[in-house]
Design a binder for these strands. Structure first.
Length: 621
RNA sequence: CGGGGCGUAGCUCAGCUUGGUAGAGCGCUCGGUUUGGGACCGAGAGGUCGCAGGUUCGAAUCCUGUCGCCCCGACCA
């Protein structure tokens, strides 16, 4: 930690605990939480609008209530779990040397205008006007706000490095919110930002956050995979996502046994070596009627134009040329043609990552009408009359459309591809000899078994849910907003930044998703709303007194206790509610009380153990 | 944005085809019985049937429009 001498803003200390005055675990007094007057209503039936398990159970057990699509109110039980998760995050952020702050969700347009995000965010941004007609927004993240805050207060390299964080609600107007808390329009996020004046410093800050994330997810008991992420769109240099592997995840990632892991958008193709043209036969145009699809082309080729070596043609021997339309943020539209092996489709997400910030859509009928040189179903870079796509200065192509190749289409590789003549393909067309391209592009889908780019073996595909993201932003925001400091030599240098996010409410939902059975939730001890749920059964006053004694003793021993003291509620209802709510340890006071005994019920295993009342505190450690 | 489904009591739903004074279970209130797995009896409170037009003597029900919600896809940290 830096020296803190003569006061000033640099000396703000991270707080040991959170900003909230009180949370679970803080022993301000020993008032027992009684279910008889707790704000809770459990539902006997599943809510009809909840599909996924976490959503269903969190609503049914009285943790959250829906307010609008993707927007939820937090009830006392839900708040307690949320605060437990936040506490773990706060502890690790503070350990990593980050200082907690808190920004408003409501922000002015101007800084977002300057960084370009007012436009780039598109419909995903919640925009509103104040009474004077000024544009405001509900922040989707806070890069601009943090950058400007630091610019306001700091101007020397001596103030750096600096890491700030907040735990705060974010707003994104999702096209389709779904799955309860898993994809909401309002969600709680821990977002942190680091400020350095050297690249080495950024690396260090980034690593500190990354390490903290590993500790956080480990403490939360969440399995995670750190994958390379696509950094291009945000203009940054390095980016990794923490994905929780789960079939319901919305991200597809790849990993190899040798340790490579990447989001599919960030996967890079291991290209084969270029080959010599020597010994290759000249290209030949052959009739291939009615072969507008790859499969019909392969069948036709095998039937009518078999390979000289006896092997059958496959889709991988064909070069498929896909016409895409790129739509740029400024409204311009450009056609490109992507050439890729015929056994692969264009992956739209990968294409968009490659062509960012443009959006990608398939070419439409009008595009083909405007470019008669592209013969639908028979598109190729070459024609008898000269290049159609991807020529050089000496040999301009007839269409002038940008032509980009999959990295597998290396120089010296031969292909069957469209001859730009209806009903005809050209066989043995060799890249580098017979046609050229304007470059390569990572737009083809990734298939299981593809080699990892680092040579660590074939990859498998898996689904994951993003729970954290660490990102070296570099100087993009500092540059745009003018965040500079004086360095050791008295020169103004632009600050380099990182941003680091964790989805708090999404994590809560994933934990719920992972920890339940047919009767309800089963919280891990680290995040459970209470440590112990004491149930008094029956109507015998002695039982209620004994239960209260146990509850008070546990409170005094530092446990968070929920006491089901509801009178005139049958044991079946109380047991059902206890299971639904999911506190990991339940204590049942009932007929054993006469012998001085209660039962400790493990929610997860279902095991019930009789324990003397006097030994309950000790038994629970 | 495309496809599908649904809007009736706090919750889950029936009634709509074939128009005739708005229902059930659960929950809630009161009284009583019951109390180790969502017990029961009796008495209650609670709904302009999403909204707006139209047809009709009469509309939850038929017609038109509209709004909203959920699911799948597209999209998306």
């Amino acid at each position: 930690m830096r020296q803190c001498g003569g006061g000033g803003p640099a000396c703000a200390q991270p707080r040991a605990v959170g900003t909230r005055a009180r949370g679970p675990g803080d022993k301000v007094d020993a008032v027992i939480t009684r279910l008889s007057n707790y704000f809770l209503r459990t539902l006997r039936e599943d809510p009809s609008d909840a599909e996924v398990t976490s959503h269903r159970l969190l609503v049914r057990a009285g943790y959250i209530r829906r307010q609008a699509p993707g927007v939820f109110a937090w009830l006392p039980l839900g708040l307690r779990v949320k605060e437990k998760i936040e506490r773990i995050i706060r502890e690790e952020m503070n350990n990593a040397g980050a200082h907690e702050v808190h920004f408003p969700a409501l922000l002015p347009r101007e800084p977002f205008e300057i960084t370009g995000r007012w436009e780039e965010y598109g419909d995903g941004l919640f925009r509103l006007k104040d009474r004077k007609g000024s544009d405001m927004l509900l922040a989707p993240t806070h890069e601009e706000a943090f950058t400007l805050l630091v610019k306001d207060l700091y101007n020397s390299y001596k103030d750096l490095p600096l890491s700030l964080y907040q735990i705060q609600d974010k707003y994104r107007d999702e096209a389709r919110p779904r799955a309860g808390l898993l994809r909401g329009r309002e969600f709680t996020m821990k977002d942190a930002y680091s400020f350095d004046y050297t690249d080495a410093g950024l690396d260090k800050s980034y690593q500190a956050q990354r390490d903290a994330y590993e500790r956080i997810f480990t403490r939360l008991g969440l399995e995670y995979v750190i994958v390379k992420a696509d950094a291009g769109a945000m203009g940054g240099s390095k980016s990794e996502e923490f994905l929780h592997p789960t079939p319901i995840g919305e991200d597809t990632f790849v990993r190899s046994a040798g340790g490579y892991a990447a989001n599919v958008e960030a996967f890079t193709t291991l290209a084969p070596e270029p080959r010599s043209f020597e010994g290759l036969t000249p290209a030949e145009v052959l009739p291939t009627p009615d072969t507008a699809t790859i499969q019909t082309l392969v069948d036709s080729a095998n039937a009518n134009h078999p390979r000289p070596d006896g092997r059958l043609w496959t889709a991988a021997d064909t070069l498929k040329n896909v016409v895409l339309a790129l739509r740029y943020p400024d409204g311009t539209r450009e056609l490109v043609v992507v050439g890729l092996p015929g056994d692969r489709e264009v992956d739209q997400k990968r294409a968009e990552a490659a062509f960012a910030p443009a959006e990608v859509e398939p070419a439409n009928e009008d595009d083909f009408k405007a470019n008669p040189g592209l013969v639908k179903g028979y598109i190729g870079p070459w024609s008898a009359a000269g290049p159609v796509l991807g020529a050089d200065e000496e040999n301009p192509s007839s269409t002038g459309i940008r032509y980009l190749l999959d990295p597998r289409v290396v120089s010296g590789s031969g292909w069957i591809t469209g001859a730009n003549e209806h009903g005809h393909h050209v066989f043995g067309l060799v890249a580098g000899r017979d046609f050229t391209a304007d470059g390569t592009v990572e737009a083809a889908e990734v298939l299981a078994g593809d080699p990892a780019p680092d040579g660590s073996g074939p990859v498998e595909l898996a689904r994951g849910m993003e729970i954290g993201h660490v990102f070296q932003l570099g100087r993009k925001y500092a540059e745009a907003l003018g965040l500079k400091v004086l360095d050791e030599n008295g020169k103004l240098v632009t600050v380099t930044m990182g941003s680091y996010g964790i989805g708090v409410t999404r994590i809560l939902a994933i934990i719920a998703e992972l920890n339940n059975d047919e009767n309800g939730l089963i919280w891990p001890k680290t995040v459970a709303p209470f440590d112990v749920h004491v149930v008094a059964t029956g109507r015998d006053a002695a039982v209620f007194e004994a239960a209260e004694t146990v509850a008070a003793a546990l409170e005094a021993a530092g446990k968070d206790v929920l006491f089901d003291d509801r009178p005139k509620v049958s044991p079946g209802v109380k047991f059902g509610d206890a299971e639904l709510i999911g506190v990991p340890t339940i204590i049942i006071a009932g007929r054993g009380v006469a012998e001085g005994v209660v039962e400790i019920w493990d929610r997860r295993t279902g095991e019930r153990t009789p324990v003397a009342i006097s030994e309950v505190v000790e038994a629970l450690g």
